[in-house]
Nucleic acid binder design. Structure first.
Lengths: 341, 341
DNA sequence: CTGTTAGCGCATTCAC
DNA sequence: GTGAATGCGCTAACAG
């Protein structure tokens, strides 16, 4: 662990033969404000490179009260299998803007949440992204009012805070397009208000709306929690209704896995007899056979967008940004069934 | 966004009627070094609370050149479905010690890696955890030498840096114990040197060793990559050998999923005809039917341990810490088969 | 036992 | 065009 003696701005200035002020202006790209000789500018730049000068962030922060740091506090995003990609996107976007990402998880504990937010505030973060594992409504802690905040994968109607969320409703419409051409009834698997209202209800609304536009409808909604076992059981008991073809729209990829289990146990062909589509677009979709066609949650993009929104807020009003849910095509829908808009 | 005017140490001192020095000592818990009147101590503490005093981190950092910040740079830990829990553990451990966790991903790009490390160094992190998605060997960037570093889920033999890794070998032995009592051959599914040598080779070594200790052996190793499709195909073609019972030890949970697919397609009962165990202990294991018995990668613990090691290094030599891989019991092994050590 | 003083490294105002 | 002077808030010598 060899820690080189740090070179300070003064060193650079000395080597370039200018004052610290001059060096500071040049290095901060504000040389235009001072009409400096091109030569001086070049000398300073060269000196900075030669000395491998890196500004001391603490000193700069002390002066400017900015830290080039953004915090991301979530309930349990890092623990999620797939939602953790919000962190990937967020940290990449932060780095793009020469910022660094601080993370912390509350695991849903309001006390920890308060502590964590205050810790980040203490650190002097330039802003906080408040994220949730599931797309849902939240009531953000009051302390967040002390800094710029962007909501990620959640909304707080009371606060009017800007938010970045997946366009669940549009995703529902896409699912509709995927199955509109399928023979037999369209059946939804998964409770519509599981896991907070947003995802389920909005997907279902979009699905129904677009199906209606195509002269079709949801024939049935199999209520079950969004789990493999729940879905498997729901489909298994639904099997008794005697339907032997159609489209099963699953509320998420795990539900689809349960559907696959129930269907294959009964030797019902996918996509021959039943088309299956779902929401999430997680890696699980690619593990199933045939690969599952899924309307994807663009987690990395969501994370990146939230950080960008935090760091360079667009001039207009602070609005909710809805990101498209792209379709990840697998082989669980007959090629002929998809309808182009 | 209401940002309250910050109260400074001077304010606290003034309110308590003492000097800044005194207040500083007291608030830093070093009042013992100064033999202060109990009354003064109490007054300062009270003032700090009343004024909701929070030290300015930037100023403190400038003075002490410590930031109470630790960086975690990885190839793509946040993108992994399951490995991202290292972040959960790491950030929790950081918070325990009143530190904050900075994260960044390189996606395997050496250039990004250098940049990221330097960015963190610029930020003045108190140390860096260098993590990888897969347990493997690495060659850390030279810049890491400038700060305390702990390796997480990887090893760099050349550097001699302390590391925290799962005890793959011990995990292999546990897998052996799980299947030692099963009738029929023990077959391994998954190439032993896939994804870096560590995981595969060590698991296999531990498995063989413990199996030998029980008078058993690995009958076959089905070579395939660690994927659902690869495993499914491997088992499907192995089916031709005519074996109709035994134990299948899968190199990870995805491999096990492929094994399940191949087996159920042939109506081979799990665990009736075949016991299946695997490594990872990811959520996928719980989604399969029957739930998969898996030797788990303790990701959250790994992350937490790495941060603790970084923050309070034990006196002795810097050694490699191997964390136990606990068994997550499912229903894929006949109850009678497990052998207690 | 307590207060005074001097920087930490940088950005910035103001004379020169 | 440039350089001296100031202060961000805190810690830690050093006097008293």
């Amino acid at each position: 662990m060899v820690r080189a003696r740090k070179t300070r701005l003064a060193d650079v200035a000395a080597r370039a033969g200018v004052s610290r002020t001059t060096a500071s202006y040049i290095l901060n790209g504000r040389s235009g404000e001072m009409r400096l000789s091109d030569d001086a500018v070049a000398r300073v730049r060269a000196a900075a490179v030669e000395l491998d000068y890196r500004p001391n962030r603490a000193a700069r922060s002390l002066r400017t009260s900015q830290t080039r740091t953004v915090g991301l506090v979530s309930d349990s995003v890092a623990s999620g299998h797939f939602a953790s990609r919000m962190l990937t996107g967020a940290s990449a976007a932060a780095r793009e803007s020469d910022h660094v990402l601080l993370i912390g998880e509350t695991d849903g504990d309001p006390l920890v949440e308060r502590l964590l937010v205050e810790q980040m505030l203490d650190q002097g973060v330039d802003g906080i992204v408040y994220a949730t594992l599931r797309h849902r409504e939240v009531a953000v802690p009051a302390a967040l009012r002390q800094t710029r905040t962007v909501l990620l994968n959640c909304a707080d109607p009371a606060s009017g805070l800007p938010a970045v969320v997946p366009d669940e409703h549009g995703g529902g419409r896409r699912a509709a397009d995927l199955v509109a051409g399928v023979a037999g009834p369209v059946v939804v698997v998964g409770d519509d208000h599981e896991q907070g209202t947003h995802a389920g209800a909005m997907r279902l609304a979009g699905l129904e709306e677009q199906l209606a536009a195509r002269g079709r409808e949801v024939a049935d909604v199999l209520r079950c929690d969004w789990s493999v076992a729940g879905a498997r059981e729901a489909v298994t008991s639904w099997w008794g209704t005697g339907v032997r073809n159609g489209a099963l729209v699953c509320m998420n990829d795990r539900v689809a896995m349960g559907v696959y289990q129930a269907l294959t146990a009964r030797e019902a062909a996918i996509p021959g007899a039943f088309a299956v589509v779902s929401f999430d677009g997680s890696e699980l979709a690619t593990w199933l056979t045939p690969a599952l066609t899924s309307v994807a949650l663009p987690f990395a993009e969501l994370g990146a967008t939230a950080v960008r929104l935090l760091l360079d807020p667009p001039p207009g009003a602070s609005r909710t940004v809805r990101l498209e849910m792209p379709v990840v095509h697998g082989g669980s829908v007959p090629a002929s069934a998809a309808v182009t808009r």
